[in-house]
Computed example of a mutant assay.
Amino acid sequence: MSDKLQAVIFDLDGVITDTAEHHYLAWKAIGDELNLPFTREFNENLKGVSRLESLRLLLSLSPVELNYSEEQLNALAERKNDLYKELIAQIKPSDVLPGIPELLGKLKRLGIKTAIASASKNAFSVIKNLKMEEQFDIIVDAAEIKNSKPDPEVFLAAAEQLGVKPEACVGIEDAVAGVEAIRSAHMTAVAIGKKEHFPHAHVTYSCTAELNADALIELHRQH
């Protein structure tokens, strides 16, 4: 890999702010409407996955095959998104996860670029509600991404838009599919969560408060 770290690319949900609960509640409402046994445990499968793919996973919980038209699928996905947007409208700057403002400030002082690479098409709204528009050089538009994580497309798009090589980047994720996407993009992979869940990560931190710019630079140098 390139010795010099040039960019840090962040997932949004669970890394910058914890919108995972908002997603869960919105999907749970859809599951309840359809009488599907949607649980917090099953919700883990939806992390880092696109809205339509998440819906298909949700529908797979049905004991009988559900045959929805594309129009019906899109309507259900849009209903979930409307519920989610109602919930995230309440997000405010104090909802940024611990350690993130300090990390972003240090990276900016060091001249290291930053980006958001999220599957969420609401990333722009969330960042705006957090009043963090100036903290990131770019936010990848999920609407232009064809392949969901673990495909590396969104991370590669971030590197391309930043004008840096993937090998010069660190990616930070809280989902297994996201870490796999980072590795597939040939970036240094940092996971947030329980170490046993992320065997493919170069390093795992239990929470965002443990993130440190100097440690990320050294990690990248080693890998």
Rank of each mutant, 00 (worst) to 15 (best):
D3Q: 12
D3T: 11
A7T: 05
D11I: 03
D13S: 08
D13I: 02
G14I: 01
D18V: 07
W27T: 04
K28I: 11
K28D: 12
G31N: 05
G31D: 07
L34T: 09
E44P: 02
E44C: 00
G48S: 09
G48N: 01
V49Y: 10
L59K: 08
L61E: 13
S62C: 12
V64P: 00
Y68H: 09
S69K: 13
E71M: 07
E71P: 00
A75V: 10
L76K: 08
K85I: 14
E86C: 06
A89L: 06
I91M: 04
I91C: 01
K92E: 15
V96R: 04
L103W: 05
L103Y: 02
G105Y: 13
R109Y: 09
R109S: 15
L110P: 03
G111E: 14
A119D: 02
A119Y: 03
K121V: 12
N122G: 03
N122Q: 06
S125K: 14
I127W: 05
K128R: 14
K128M: 07
N129W: 08
L130N: 06
I138Y: 07
I139L: 02
I139A: 02
A143D: 13
A143M: 10
K146D: 03
N147V: 01
S148N: 05
K149P: 07
P152H: 03
E153M: 08
E153A: 02
F155A: 04
L156P: 06
L156F: 03
A157E: 15
A158P: 08
A158R: 11
L162K: 02
G163E: 10
V164R: 04
P166F: 06
E167C: 06
E167Q: 15
A168K: 08
V170S: 12
G171K: 01
E173M: 07
A175Y: 02
A175P: 02
V179S: 12
A181L: 05
S184Y: 01
A185H: 02
H186K: 15
H186Q: 15
A191F: 05
A191W: 06
K194M: 14
T204M: 00
T204C: 05
Y205Q: 09
Y205P: 00
C207I: 00
T208G: 06
L211C: 09
L211E: 07
A215M: 14
Q222P: 00
